[in-house]
Amino acid sequence: MKQLFYILIVFISTSASFAQNEALFNDANAHYNEGNYAEAIDKYESILDTKEHSAELYFNMANAHYKLNHIAPSIYYYEKALLLKPRDKDIQNNIAYARNMTIDAIEVIPEVGFSKLIQTITNTFSFNNWAKLSVALVVLFVILFLGYYFSNSTAKKRVAFVTSLSCLLLACVAVAFAFHKYDLVEKDQPAIVFAKEAQVKSEPNLRSTEAFKLHEGTKVQVLDTVSSWKKIQLSDGKTGWILNEDVKMLKIF
């Protein structure tokens, strides 16, 4: 009875929070439509303070920041919206406009040859889907092997044996791609530069030489963190160290 009471309390509080956030969201949208972008952002941030996250919320926040020419926040929230809805055309189109406001022109080094092929195949499915595929193939292998073992026909035995081994081989390949996908996701630690102009150092200390400068809105990959510094890599392969306060991680929700 006590457990049921706790469940009821949680349900009521969750429903009340959802209703309140929905009212805040509608209020924020009304401010946005009236051109009161700063007020809309305040309302959207109030929703984020309740730990509620959605692609729609981030997208609307990004739009409001874009209207105010806030380069880094607009790109940051578009990128977060893309993490939740990577195939959304509206987000893709709007982030392209926001990126045009950035100063840094960084060349993207494309994947080529066998490496590109592996990346393309790996990104076909998520880690979970690769894992599910490998389990399905193992189950199919077991069924076919049992068919081979109990079959009295030589022809059927041959077919069952070959197809069962093929399923086992494909299952191993699927497992390899699953681990590769997991590794890619874990290593993918994007961040957005928020400083108007940030000095990127050759080593993680202020006395080291300057490697290059970056400006707000530029997207980087974080490779390591040492004290108050982050080691970053650009899309052209250049690396350096930047102060923690100058960048904001994207995968923190």
Rank of each mutant, 00 (worst) to 15 (best):
M1C: 10
K2C: 01
Q3F: 14
L8N: 10
V10A: 14
F11Y: 13
S13I: 08
T14Q: 14
T14N: 14
F25D: 07
F25M: 14
D27P: 05
N29P: 08
A30S: 13
H31C: 03
N33S: 12
N36R: 14
N36Q: 13
A38T: 06
A40P: 04
D42F: 02
K43G: 07
S46E: 10
S46C: 05
L48P: 06
T50H: 10
K51V: 00
E52Y: 10
H53Y: 14
A55P: 00
E56L: 03
Y58R: 08
N60M: 02
M61I: 09
A64W: 02
L68N: 05
H70I: 00
I71V: 15
S74C: 08
I75Y: 04
I75F: 02
Y76W: 07
Y78H: 06
K80V: 05
K80P: 01
L82H: 08
L82F: 06
L83M: 12
L83H: 08
Q92V: 00
N93S: 11
I95G: 03
A96E: 13
A98I: 09
R99L: 12
M101F: 08
A105P: 04
I109Y: 03
E111W: 04
F114L: 14
K116A: 15
L117G: 09
Q119W: 06
T120F: 12
I121R: 11
T122D: 03
N123G: 02
T124S: 04
F127K: 08
N129H: 03
K132N: 15
K132F: 13
S134H: 06
A136W: 02
V139C: 12
L140P: 01
L140E: 09
L140N: 14
F141E: 10
I143K: 09
F145M: 14
G147N: 12
G147P: 05
Y148C: 08
Y149P: 00
Y149W: 09
S151R: 03
K156L: 11
R158A: 15
F161Q: 08
L165W: 15
L165Y: 13
C167M: 13
C167F: 11
L168G: 15
L170A: 10
V173K: 04
A174D: 03
A176M: 10
F177M: 14
F179M: 11
H180V: 00
D183A: 15
L184N: 14
D188V: 05
D188K: 12
D188I: 07
D188H: 15
F194G: 01
A195L: 03
E197K: 14
Q199M: 05
V200F: 06
K201D: 04
E203K: 15
P204Y: 06
P204V: 00
N205C: 07
L206S: 15
S208Y: 06
H215K: 11
G217M: 04
G217I: 06
T218E: 09
T218C: 00
V222Q: 07
V222L: 07
L223K: 12
T225Q: 15
K231Q: 11
Q233M: 11
S235G: 02
D236E: 00
G237Y: 02
G237N: 05
I242L: 01
D246M: 06
V247E: 05
M249I: 09
M249R: 08
L250V: 05
K251Y: 05
